[in-house]
Design a protein around this nucleic acid. Structure first.
Lengths: 339, 339
DNA sequence: CTGAAAGCGCTTACAG
DNA sequence: CTGAAAGCGCTTACAG
C-alpha cells in the first residue's frame, strides 16, 4: 500500500542511472544538463510505465514554496461565491497554481483555522471573500507573511482589495427602485432588509441606500428602515412574514443578498398578490430570478471579472503599485415592470 | 520572506532544548515521553509567541500520508454540487481531514489532471461525482492505489458507489408527471430534454422515463422522445425555443438537470403562457424554483445525505463490506397544480 | 528526562 | 555527460 508509489529512486534503479539524472530529466532540463538522448528517453519511458507522479510534499519542502493559492468564501451554495470559486480555480490552474477552496460559513473560528491551515500548507496567497473576522484574518496573514487579497469586502486596515463599490452600487440601485415606484404611481416607505449591523459590507450598502433616499427627499417616518436579519433564508422568510403582516403599506424593499431573497421567495409562494404590490431592489443576482414574476431591479456583480482583477494583482506582485482599493464593474438587471 | 516561518528548530534554539523535545511536546506527547512540565510549558509558550504552525509538507513527507480527502465535481455553480462540496468539506474537517475541492467542468482532461494532482498530493481518498471520464478515472485511481468513492453516478467497473437510483427515481417522477397531466385533462406526447447520449446517468434516467411511459401504455408517435442537449443553459434555451415553435402540442417535458431547467426559464420569461400549458418533471431541485409559476414535480436529491453515506463508507474503511452500490434517499417536490 | 541521528522524496550546487 | 552529497522540516526509534 504505502510503498506502492514509485519515486525517482525507483526509476533510477530501474533505468540504471542516478536519481540526479532522473530528476533533471523529469523536470524538463535534460538538454540544459546535456543528458544523452538515450538516457533521457529511457527515463521518460520508465516514468510513464511506472505511472510516476512527483511527490509534491517533498518538492514543496525542498523549495519552501507550495504553488498553492487559496480562496476563502463564506459558502459555496450561493451562486455569487460559487462563481467566484470556479473562476478562481480556473485562473489558478491556467497559471500552473493549485487552487484551494474553503467555505467558512461566516464563522470566525473556521476562518482563523483555515488561515492557520494555509500557513501550514505554505500557501502563497489567500483571497478572502467577505470574511466575518476581517481584521483578525488580515492580522494573522500579515504576521505569517501570507499574502492576502480581499475580495468583495472593504478592508479597513489597508492591503489589496477588489470589490464592488457597495455604497455607489446601493445608491444607484435604490435610485432605480425609487424611480420604478414612482413610475408605477405607488408611494410609501422603503425598507432595507438583510445583513447584520456589524457587517461592514451591509453597512456600506445601507449608507448608499440612505443616501439615495435623502437625495429624493424621502424622510423615513417612524422607525428605522433597516430590518436586520442573518443571511439565512428561513430566518429571512419570518422577517418578511412579519413585515407583510403589518398594516403599513410600504412601496419597496431593498433585499440585501440572495439568501434574503430566497427567504422572500419562500414567503412569495404563499402570498403572491401581496408580494407583487411591492417593488424590489436586490443586491445580488441569480439567473432563476429572471423567471420570477416580481417587479425588481438587481445588481449583478461579476464574480469572474472581480476574480480576474484580483488574480492579475497577484500575478503582477502585491508590492507593485502599493495597496489599493480596486472597484469591480457590475450591471443592473431589471424585470419588466408589473402592471 | 522565506525564512520568516518559525520551525521547531527555531523554537528549540529559543528555548534551549533539542528539536526532539519540541516535536514531542507539540504533538501532545509530552507526558508519554516524560518531559518536565517546565520544559513543556516553555516550549508551548514560545511556539505560541512565534506563531508556530507546523510545515505540513514536511510532516506529510515523513508520514507518507497526507490526511487529505478530495472531491471532484463537474461544477460548483449548481446547487446540488455546491451543496455536496460543502457537506464534504464539513465532514472532512470535523474528522480532522483536509478537504480538497476541484471542479472539472465535464472535461476529461481536467478530470485526469485532477487525479494526477491528487496522487501527487498523496490524497487518501477521492470522491468523484458524476465524472465524464468515469472509467479512465477509476482505472487511474486503482493503479495509484488512490481510494475512490463514486457519488451520484453508477460505475460499471465495481468500486464503491453512492447514488440516487436514477432509473427508479426517473420512473417515479415520470409517473407523477403523467398523473398530473391526466388530472389536468391534458394529453399529448412527453419529451425528455437534456443530457447527452453517452452520459451514463442520463441513460439510466431516460430508461426509467421510458419504462414509466410504457407502463402507462403511452406509445410515442413518430420521433424519439429524447432531445439531447449539453448541460448548458444557453444551448438548452435554444432547444426549448425550437420545441415550442413547432406546431405539435406536447403535454409534458422531463427536464434533465437544473442547467437545462435554467434554459427553460430563460425561454419562459418571454413566453409565459405557452410554457404554462405544459407540465414538467425536473430531475433536480433549486429553492428558487418554488417561486416560479409553472406546473412541475421535481426530484430533490439530498446532497448532504449522499455525502454522509459516502463519508461513513470511507471512515469504516473501503475494504469493510466489499464493493456495493448504495442508494441515497430523495424526495419529490411538487408545485401547486396550475388551473 | 533529553539529545543525536536517520530518513521521508525531491532538487541543486559541486565534482568529476 | 553523470553521480554523491547536502538539506528542506518533521518524527521516531535508539541511546544515554
Amino acid at each position: 500500500m504505502a510503498g506502492a508509489r514509485p519515486t525517482i529512486r525507483a526509476i533510477s534503479e530501474s533505468v540504471g542511472c542516478s536519481v540526479t539524472t532522473v530528476s533533471m530529466v523529469l523536470s524538463g532540463r535534460a538538454e540544459e544538463f546535456r543528458i544523452s538522448a538515450a538516457t533521457r528517453d529511457r527515463i521518460i519511458q520508465t516514468a510513464r510505465e511506472m505511472n510516476y507522479q512527483p511527490n509534491l510534499h517533498a518538492r514543496n519542502l525542498r523549495f519552501g514554496t507550495s504553488n498553492i493559492v487559496a480562496i476563502m468564501v463564506p459558502t459555496l451554495t450561493h451562486r455569487f461565491f460559487s462563481g467566484m470559486a470556479e473562476a478562481f480555480e480556473r485562473l489558478a490552474r491556467t497559471n500552473g497554481l493549485f487552487p484551494l477552496i474553503i467555505a467558512t460559513h461566516h464563522d470566525k473560528t473556521e476562518e482563523l483555522d483555515a488561515i492557520d491551515y494555509f500557513i501550514s500548507q505554505n500557501v502563497d496567497c489567500v483571497f478572502t471573500a467577505n470574511s466575518a473576522a476581517m481584521s483578525e484574518v488580515s492580522k494573522t496573514c500579515r504576521r505569517a507573511r501570507l499574502k492576502q487579497i480581499v475580495i468583495d469586502a472593504h478592508n479597513g486596515g489597508g492591503g489589496h482589495v477588489v470589490t464592488t463599490d457597495s455604497f455607489a452600487a446601493a445608491q444607484v440601485l435604490t435610485t432605480r427602485l425609487l424611480q420604478r415606484i414612482a413610475a408605477a404611481k405607488k408611494s410609501g416607505p422603503v425598507y432595507f432588509v438583510g445583513g447584520m449591523p456589524d457587517h461592514s459590507v451591509t453597512r456600506r450598502r445601507l449608507d448608499g441606500f440612505l443616501a439615495a433616499l435623502s437625495a429624493h427627499a424621502i424622510a423615513f417616518e417612524g422607525e428605522k428602515p433597516f430590518v436586520p436579519t442573518p443571511f439565512n433564508a428561513g430566518q429571512a422568510r419570518e422577517v418578511f412574514a412579519d413585515m407583510f403582516a403589518r398594516s403599513e403599506k410600504f412601496a419597496g424593499i431593498f433585499v440585501n443578498s440572495l439568501a434574503v431573497m430566497e427567504g422572500l421567495l419562500l414567503y412569495f409562494r404563499q402570498n403572491r398578490e401581496r408580494c407583487r404590490e411591492v417593488r424590489y431592489a436586490v443586491f445580488d443576482y441569480h439567473p432563476f430570478m429572471e423567471a420570477v414574476d416580481l417587479d425588481y431591479v438587481c445588481v449583478r456583480q461579476n464574480a469572474e471579472t472581480m476574480m480576474s482583477m484580483a488574480f492579475s494583482i497577484y500575478l503582477k506582485g502585491l508590492d507593485a503599485g502599493g495597496d489599493q482599493i480596486h472597484f469591480a464593474p457590475y450591471e443592473l438587471i431589471e424585470s419588466e415592470p408589473i402592471r
